[in-house]
């Protein structure tokens, strides 16, 4: 029923935290090896969509398929076992543990395959060499950019079908943003499928194949970076200001 190369299909997702639905009627798909951006103003519900996919919303309706599996009813820790992994807003590292422990914990569900974990660890260090240097340092002592690298590395350690990134550029200096963006482009080259929440159009345009524009908790536009580049001003005025 689903086209074979869709690695993520979200249909009619609605949900929120308290008494209010933050997102409504969200239907989106992600093909294998594709990078899709979610753009939109504050409070549009971008983070909520990621949390919904990760199983972190208390109230949620709709269906979510990752790969060939319907994960709608899965608890978060089952989704985290190879289906999806997240580099959340604000990074949320385990602050009092070392960089390497943070990374190894990312592969918690592979704890019985030590060789696999070691290989993953090596690939993360290859992506971010600075982390190997700092691997025994407590993660809270790193700078914002380095912390973001650890968060992305921890996500990669799970080796999941899809990667979810929530505003990886937030609060970083231009130099650090550049490093993060280059890493994401490298991940794409390696064939990762990723869903990226961003407020910065330039960052999303550099990384993504397709963009969804979210406003008021709904998808209002599906577009591509080329279109944004061509008629950028118009689109940006319409939805993003």
């Amino acid at each position: 029923m689903s086209s074979a190369n869709n690695i993520l299909e979200v249909s009619s997702l609605a949900g929120g935290y308290g008494r209010f639905d933050v997102v409504r009627n969200i239907t989106l798909r992600l093909r294998e090896g594709e990078a899709v951006g979610l753009l939109g103003p504050n409070g549009a519900g971008k983070t909520t969509i990621l949390r919904g996919i990760m199983g972190l919303l208390k109230q949620r309706v709709g269906t979510i398929r990752i790969g060939d599996t319907d994960v709608t009813m899965f608890p978060t820790h089952r989704i985290a076992r190879g289906y999806a992994a997240i580099a959340p807003e604000g990074r949320r590292l385990f602050a009092d543990q070392t960089v390497e422990d943070n990374l190894i914990l990312g592969a918690w569900h592979r704890r019985r395959e030590p060789q696999r974990v070691q290989a993953l660890l090596d690939s993360v260090y290859a992506l971010f060499p600075v982390l190997r240097e700092y691997r025994h340092r407590q993660s809270s002592f790193l700078s914002g950019g380095e912390q973001q690298m650890v968060a992305i590395g921890r996500m990669l350690m799970a080796d999941p079908l899809i990667l979810l990134l929530d505003e990886p550029s937030i609060g970083l200096s231009p130099v650090a943003v550049d490093i993060v963006v280059k890493a994401l482009i490298e991940l794409r080259r390696r064939g990762a499928s990723l869903l990226l929440v961003e407020q910065r159009v330039d960052v999303a345009a550099r990384v993504c194949d397709r963009l969804y524009v979210i406003s008021g908790g709904e998808i209002v536009e599906e577009t591509t970076p080329e279109v944004v580049g061509r008629e950028g001003a118009e689109l940006i005025n319409k939805y993003l200001g």
Partner: peptide, 10 residues
């Protein structure tokens, strides 16, 4: 219906 949140912040 469940009450909706104000659509857009701005």
């Amino acid at each position: 219906r469940r009450p909706e949140s104000p659509a857009d912040s701005f």
